[in-house]
Structure formats: structure tokens, C-alpha cells
Design a protein around this nucleic acid. Structure first.
Lengths: 102, 102
DNA sequence: CGTGTAAGGAATTCTGACACG
DNA sequence: CGTGTAAGGAATTCTGACACG
């Protein structure tokens, strides 16, 4: 995992990087759009990937999209990723089986 | 500037990533080995580059090197970088002058 | 010299709630 | 629904100092 995915940024830094208020960031988490980790004491820790996602979210909100729609969108994205991986695995196995017939 | 150079990490995250105590990190700053930025309120903000540098420093300390030696080393590195840039600029200008003679 | 620690205070973050719309 | 704000408390960080070696 690269630096981009390390959950290490405090919400203040994320707010500065994205230009979003603390309230908005917390709300988007509440709606399940992002999933920061928590320190032992309970403070949120974000990754740069989260920061990028938040900037995406901000754009979509500006376009009048609602949080649950954005969430659905992300679910679809994830499903696509899974489908892709499944396809690749199937292709790999077919390929292996094919070689055995030679 | 990439994510790696953004000064956004709190000292706690840096401590976790490097395995160094808060005391050590602050001390290495005091000795001028790293230069985190400060938030408006005065809290330190580090970059991933700082994190990498700290891991380097930790190794050198383990090898018995003293902080002022490490600092000297970094100064030399910087000087080399400057020399390199100067060389490239001179070469670029010579090249341009040479083309004009054609 | 490099590092741990206890001390007191300040900055940061947290949650739940009320407000507006 | 999405967001601002005031409120009280808890976690995080800060500095300067003493200790040891």
C-alpha cells in the first residue's frame, strides 16, 4: 500500500486540502461516503485517497446530487472492480486449463 | 508538488509511521535535521518526505552518528543538488549559444 | 549528547443538539 | 437534506525543565 492510502491525516489537514468545512467532512462520513480510521482516542485519520474522494464528492454535491445517490454510485464502482477481478481470474483459469490440453 | 511533500501529518501519525518517540522527533527538529511546518496554533505538520528522512536519521543514529554529523551530511547533499542544477543551466546556455553560431 | 518523564496549558477534535430551510 | 454553530468534554500537542549518563 502506498502513501496515498495511509490513514494518517487529521481532519484539520483534510479541511485545508479540500476546502471543505469540518462539518461537511464529518457529515459525508456519517452518510457512509468515506471511511476514515480512528486513533485510539477516537480522532479521525484520513488518507490522501480520502482527500481525493472528498473533492469528487464536493463536485457532485455542487451538481445537485444527493449523498445517497453518490453512495450508490460508489457501490456500482466497487461492483465493477469486483467484476473485473472475477473476469480476470476466470480467464486465467481457462488459460491454465487450455495449456493442459496441449 | 506531490502528496509526499505536503506538510499535513501530525506528530502522532509520524511517530506511528516511524516508530520514533515524540521526544526524538522533536529533538531532531531542534537540531535542525527536519523542518516541519506549523499550524496557526503552533502544532507541527510533517510530510511523508519528512517521515522518510526520519527513518534515515534513525538508522544513522543507531550507527552511532551524532546529530551534527547527520546535519552536515544533509548540507552536502543539498550542495550537490545545487551544483547539479547549476551545471545543467550552464550546459543549457552553452548549447543555446552554440546553436546561434550555426 | 540523546532521550525519558511529569507538569501545566493551549490547540485540536469529538459528539449530540438546535437551527434553518 | 445539507450545513452552520455554540457547548462541554476528551484527546492531542506544545514548551521548558529536571534527570541520567
Amino acid at each position: 500500500m502506498s502513501y496515498k492510502d495511509k490513514k494518517v491525516l487529521p481532519i484539520g489537514s483534510v479541511s485545508e486540502l479540500t476546502g471543505l468545512s469540518l462539518r461537511k467532512i464529518r457529515y459525508y462520513e456519517e452518510r457512509g461516503l468515506i471511511l476514515p480510521e480512528r486513533s485510539g482516542g477516537g480522532t479521525r485519520k484520513f488518507s490522501f485517497t480520502d482527500v481525493e474522494k472528498l473533492m469528487d464528492i464536493a463536485n457532485q454535491i455542487e451538481d445537485g446530487m444527493q449523498t445517497f445517490e453518490i453512495k450508490k454510485l460508489y457501490k456500482k464502482e466497487k461492483q465493477k472492480d469486483k467484476d473485473k477481478i472475477r473476469d480476470e481470474m476466470i480467464r486465467g483459469q481457462l488459460n491454465a486449463a487450455f495449456k493442459m490440453t496441449k
